[in-house]
Structure formats: structure tokens, C-alpha cells
Nucleic acid binder design. Structure first.
Length: 407
RNA sequence: GCGGCUAUAGUUUAGUGGUAAAACUCCGGGUUGUGGUCCCGGCAUCGAGAGUUCAAUUCUCUCUAGCCGCC
């Protein structure tokens, strides 16, 4: 049997939204699905058992971080990522490609995965040259062969190539892993976007070749290729065609975006993708962005926002986001989410209580808020899946957005 | 009762004859394949009164409060 199999179940009538089943050796993922991020083999602040109770089906860890700490061999000795972290379900690893961006061009800058429309140009320079890198304090330098990193932990020098990333991810042993790619900033010029995209394509072929070389890993692990191309629809189409033609087990849509061009860039890519392959929208996102992705036919989503926002005091509610540390919540004794059903792990806690914990720096505050947010997104996505199956996804999405933005 | 010291943001402290700095707190904002218990803003007219001076938070005097010592 293949490492994974994917079956489409339902397609929505008036959008590209679809419901499917992704089967791995560690269990089934019903898609669309939200994948909580477990960068260093843990979803920050949430026990695996609680994660499962909240509805998580699969988690995503990071190659670069686990390679540095504790080292992929330790994870391998433990029996692979899932066994190491005591997570029974399916696992995914990201290739470390995103760190080319976050430690390179985006390092120390105001830009992250999403870029402000008015970000100054010098904030988003590509780091393709060691002199530029040291001048800008970046920790990653790209060349055609691969990327050299300076560890953010101890300053030591490391090098990733597509082959090395595959090798490390074989050791980590996740059910699904990604090809090593270059994630560019949307504000790079067209020529650089094209150049980086073509480099990502060459790296994709090398990743596949390295993977196929390891017959043992082939039986257990599926490899997803990543579409790049920045904000340009022609590049996105070209990249989607190219990546789809190579024989990957699934497709990731990568890249950083500005709010304005996510929709178009995604749409351009998706129309070129074969329907039978599972599609992962990397690093997305906010509730509205996830629903947009689902409407365009994406199956998997991962994002750090739920946990990051949670531990810093921002929580999701059906009526929009809420800053728990604001003064007004000091004596707000309503539940975090008044709409959440009793019995949900975090439903018994009041805003005033969690605000107090967060203000006091108590760990439990971050734990509860993170669980609440992850649970919120999981429920949003599983609700979307049910709506697709029931043929009412459009209404589901419209209703959610209306209440979320007007709340 | 006498002598000395101190009095700057909610707190702990800088500092200057020309309208005040920092940390923490507080108030608000940010955060999309996690370098994040993080990042960015905002909040004081310097105990009260009088005097000297072009100008005082800064010098002088008085008062008040606190601390220390002595009787």
C-alpha cells in the first residue's frame, strides 16, 4: 500500500470546496482539516490528549527546529515524531524551507508570512549573498545548491539542501513531509520571484529523487511538493503545473502573501492542480483565510496564529477577536466563548479568570487560551466540512463571516 | 525638643539653571509553513508655598511628610 491514500467524498455545488478522507498509517484525516502546529514536537501549551479531545486529527512539526534540537537521530531512536511526542495520530513535517525566509529575508524585519501593503522595499530584500546577509543581520543565505543557516540558538553554521532536508525528514518519520522550497516575500520583484520559483522546482525534483532512493521510507511516508510564484498569477499557474507533473503524493501552496493577493494567487494555482491529490495551504491562517482556502478547494491548513495569539492574550470568538488583557475583561465573568458547548475543555473558564492568569504570568492562562483558540479553529473547519457534506458550505461561510466581522 | 538626610510616572530609580530618562506596572495596538512569557505605541510639568533669575524640577527660605541619629 502507498504511504497515504486520498479519496474525495463530496464537492460543494457552488464553489470548489470539497470534503475528503486522507488515510495514513497512523490514522484517517477528514478534510478539510486544520493541522495544529507542533514546531518542536509539541503544540505549545497543549497536551496531546487534550489536542485530540479538541478535535485535532494531525499535527505538523518543523525540520529545521527538530534538526537543531534535539537532533533528528533522537527522534528516530524514539520511534519517530509521533512516538517521540506521544501523539497517536498522523504527523506532518515541514521542510525547513520557510526558515529560509524567516531567518533570511524576513529576519529582524517587520514582515512575516503576511506583509503589510505599505512595507518599505528595504524591509523585504532577498538574501542571496553573504555580504548582504551580514549587512542585514540575516541568518540564512541562499544559493542554487541549498541554504546556509546560522543557528538562531548558538550561532553555529548549518547547511540544508533538498537532499539533506529529505534525509532529516526520513529520520523524523512523519506520515507526510514537504519538499525543501524557497519562500519569497511578496514584495520581491517579478524577476526574483521567477528565479526563486524555478529554483524551488529544481529542488522539488531533487527532493523526489532523494525520497525515491529510500525504498523503506517510500512505504511509510508521503512527500508533498510546494507551489511558489509569489503574487503573480502566471507564475502561480506555471508552478502548479510543474509541481503537479512531478509525481508528488500531495501539493502544498506556499509563499507569503499580502491580504490583497492571496485570493488571486491561490486561485491561479488551484485551477492547475489535479483534483485527486490532497492540497495543503501552508501557514494559513486566520478564520476568514481558512474559509477562503476551503472555498477554493484546499484540504489542509496549518497555522501558528491560534497558539501564538492565545498565549499572548487574544482569543477567537464567533463575534470576532477579543483582547483578553484589556481592562474591560477584568470583571467579565462570561465564558471565553459564550457559544461553546458545555463539556468542551475550556468552556467552564471565564474571561475574567483567564485574563487574571495571563496578567499574572501564570502558565495556565496561556494553556487555556491556546486550547480555546485551537479548539475554535478546529471546530470552524470541521463545521465547514460538515457543511460541505450537507451541501450548504456557502451559507456556512457567509454566516460565519457576517457574525465574525460585525460582532 | 534638637540635628541630619530624603521628597521626580502606580513602583523602583536617573538627571539637568532653559519645561525630564529608564525599567517594571498600567492603557492600547500588533502577531498567518513559531528566533516570540515577544514586538510597537501611550501615560509624569519633578511634595506644597514663597523668593532669586530673562528662565527653577534644578539655587534659597518656609511648611508638610518619611527615614536616621541625639537628648
Amino acid at each position: 500500500m502507498n504511504a497515504i491514500s486520498f479519496a474525495l467524498e463530496t464537492r460543494a455545488p457552488r464553489s470548489a470546496a470539497r470534503a475528503g478522507t486522507l488515510t495514513t498509517r497512523h490514522g484517517v484525516i477528514r478534510t478539510p482539516a486544520f493541522v495544529p502546529v507542533a514546531t518542536k514536537a509539541n503544540v505549545k501549551g497543549i497536551l496531546p490528549e487534550a489536542l485530540a479531545a479538541l478535535g485535532a486529527q494531525v499535527v505538523l512539526a518543523n525540520t529545521y527546529h527538530l534538526y537543531l534540537h534535539p537532533g533528528e537521530k533522537i527522534v528516530q531512536e524514539a520511534g519517530g515524531l509521533g512516538a517521540f511526542m506521544n501523539w497517536q495520530g498522523p504527523t506532518i513535517t515541514d521542510s525547513g524551507g520557510f526558515q529560509v525566509f524567516s531567518l533570511g529575508a524576513a529576519f529582524g524585519k517587520t514582515i512575516s508570512k503576511f506583509v503589510k501593503k505599505d512595507a518599505p522595499q528595504e524591509e523585504t530584500l532577498a538574501v542571496y549573498d553573504e555580504n548582504v546577509a551580514s549587512q542585514h543581520g540575516a541568518l540564512a543565505v541562499i544559493d542554487d545548491e541549498g541554504v546556509s543557516f546560522t543557528s538562531h540558538l548558538d550561532g553555529s553554521l548549518h547547511r540544508f539542501t533538498p537532499e539533506r532536508s529529505v534525509e532529516i525528514q526520513h529520520s523524523l518519520g512523519a506520515d507526510i513531509f514537504f519538499a525543501f522550497d524557497e519562500c519569497t516575500s511578496p514584495s520581491e520583484p517579478y524577476d526574483y520571484q521567477k528565479e526563486a520559483m524555478e529554483r524551488t522546482h529544481r529542488w522539488a525534483e531533487r527532493s523526489l529523487k532523494a525520497h525515491r532512493h529510500n525504498l523503506e521510507a517510500n512505504k511509510k511516508q508521503a512527500l508533498f511538493g510546494i507551489v511558489q510564484g509569489g503574487r503573480h498569477e502566471d507564475l502561480r499557474r506555471e508552478s502548479a503545473r510543474e509541481i503537479s507533473s512531478l509525481g508528488f503524493d500531495g501539493i502544498g501552496i506556499g509563499g507569503s502573501f499580502s491580504k490583497e493577493d492571496m485570493r488571486g494567487a491561490l486561485g491561479a494555482a488551484v485551477t492547475e492542480l489535479p483534483p485527486e491529490l490532497p492540497r495543503h495551504f501552508l501557514g494559513i491562517g486566520e478564520p476568514s483565510d481558512i474559509l477562503e482556502g476551503i472555498a477554493q478547494g484546499m484540504d489542509l491548513f496549518d497555522c501558528v496564529a491560534a497558539t501564538r495569539l492565545g498565549r499572548h492574550g487574544t482569543i477567537y470568538t464567533p463575534r470576532g477577536v477579543l483582547h483578553l488583557k484589556n481592562e474591560r475583561y477584568k470583571n467579565d465573568f462570561t465564558p471565553l466563548n459564550p457559544a461553546s458547548a458545555p463539556g468542551v475543555l475550556t468552556s467552564g473558564f471565564t474571561r475574567a479568570y483567564v485574563a487574571h492568569l495571563l496578567r499574572s504570568g501564570e502558565m495556565l492562562g496561556a494553556v487555556i487560551a491556546s486550547m480555546h483558540n485551537v479548539g475554535f479553529i478546529l471546530k470552524l473547519v470541521s463545521g465547514a466540512r460538515q457543511a460541505i457534506v450537507d451541501g450548504r458550505f456557502d451559507e456556512y461561510r457567509a454566516d460565519f463571516i457576517r457574525e465574525y466581522t460585525n460582532g
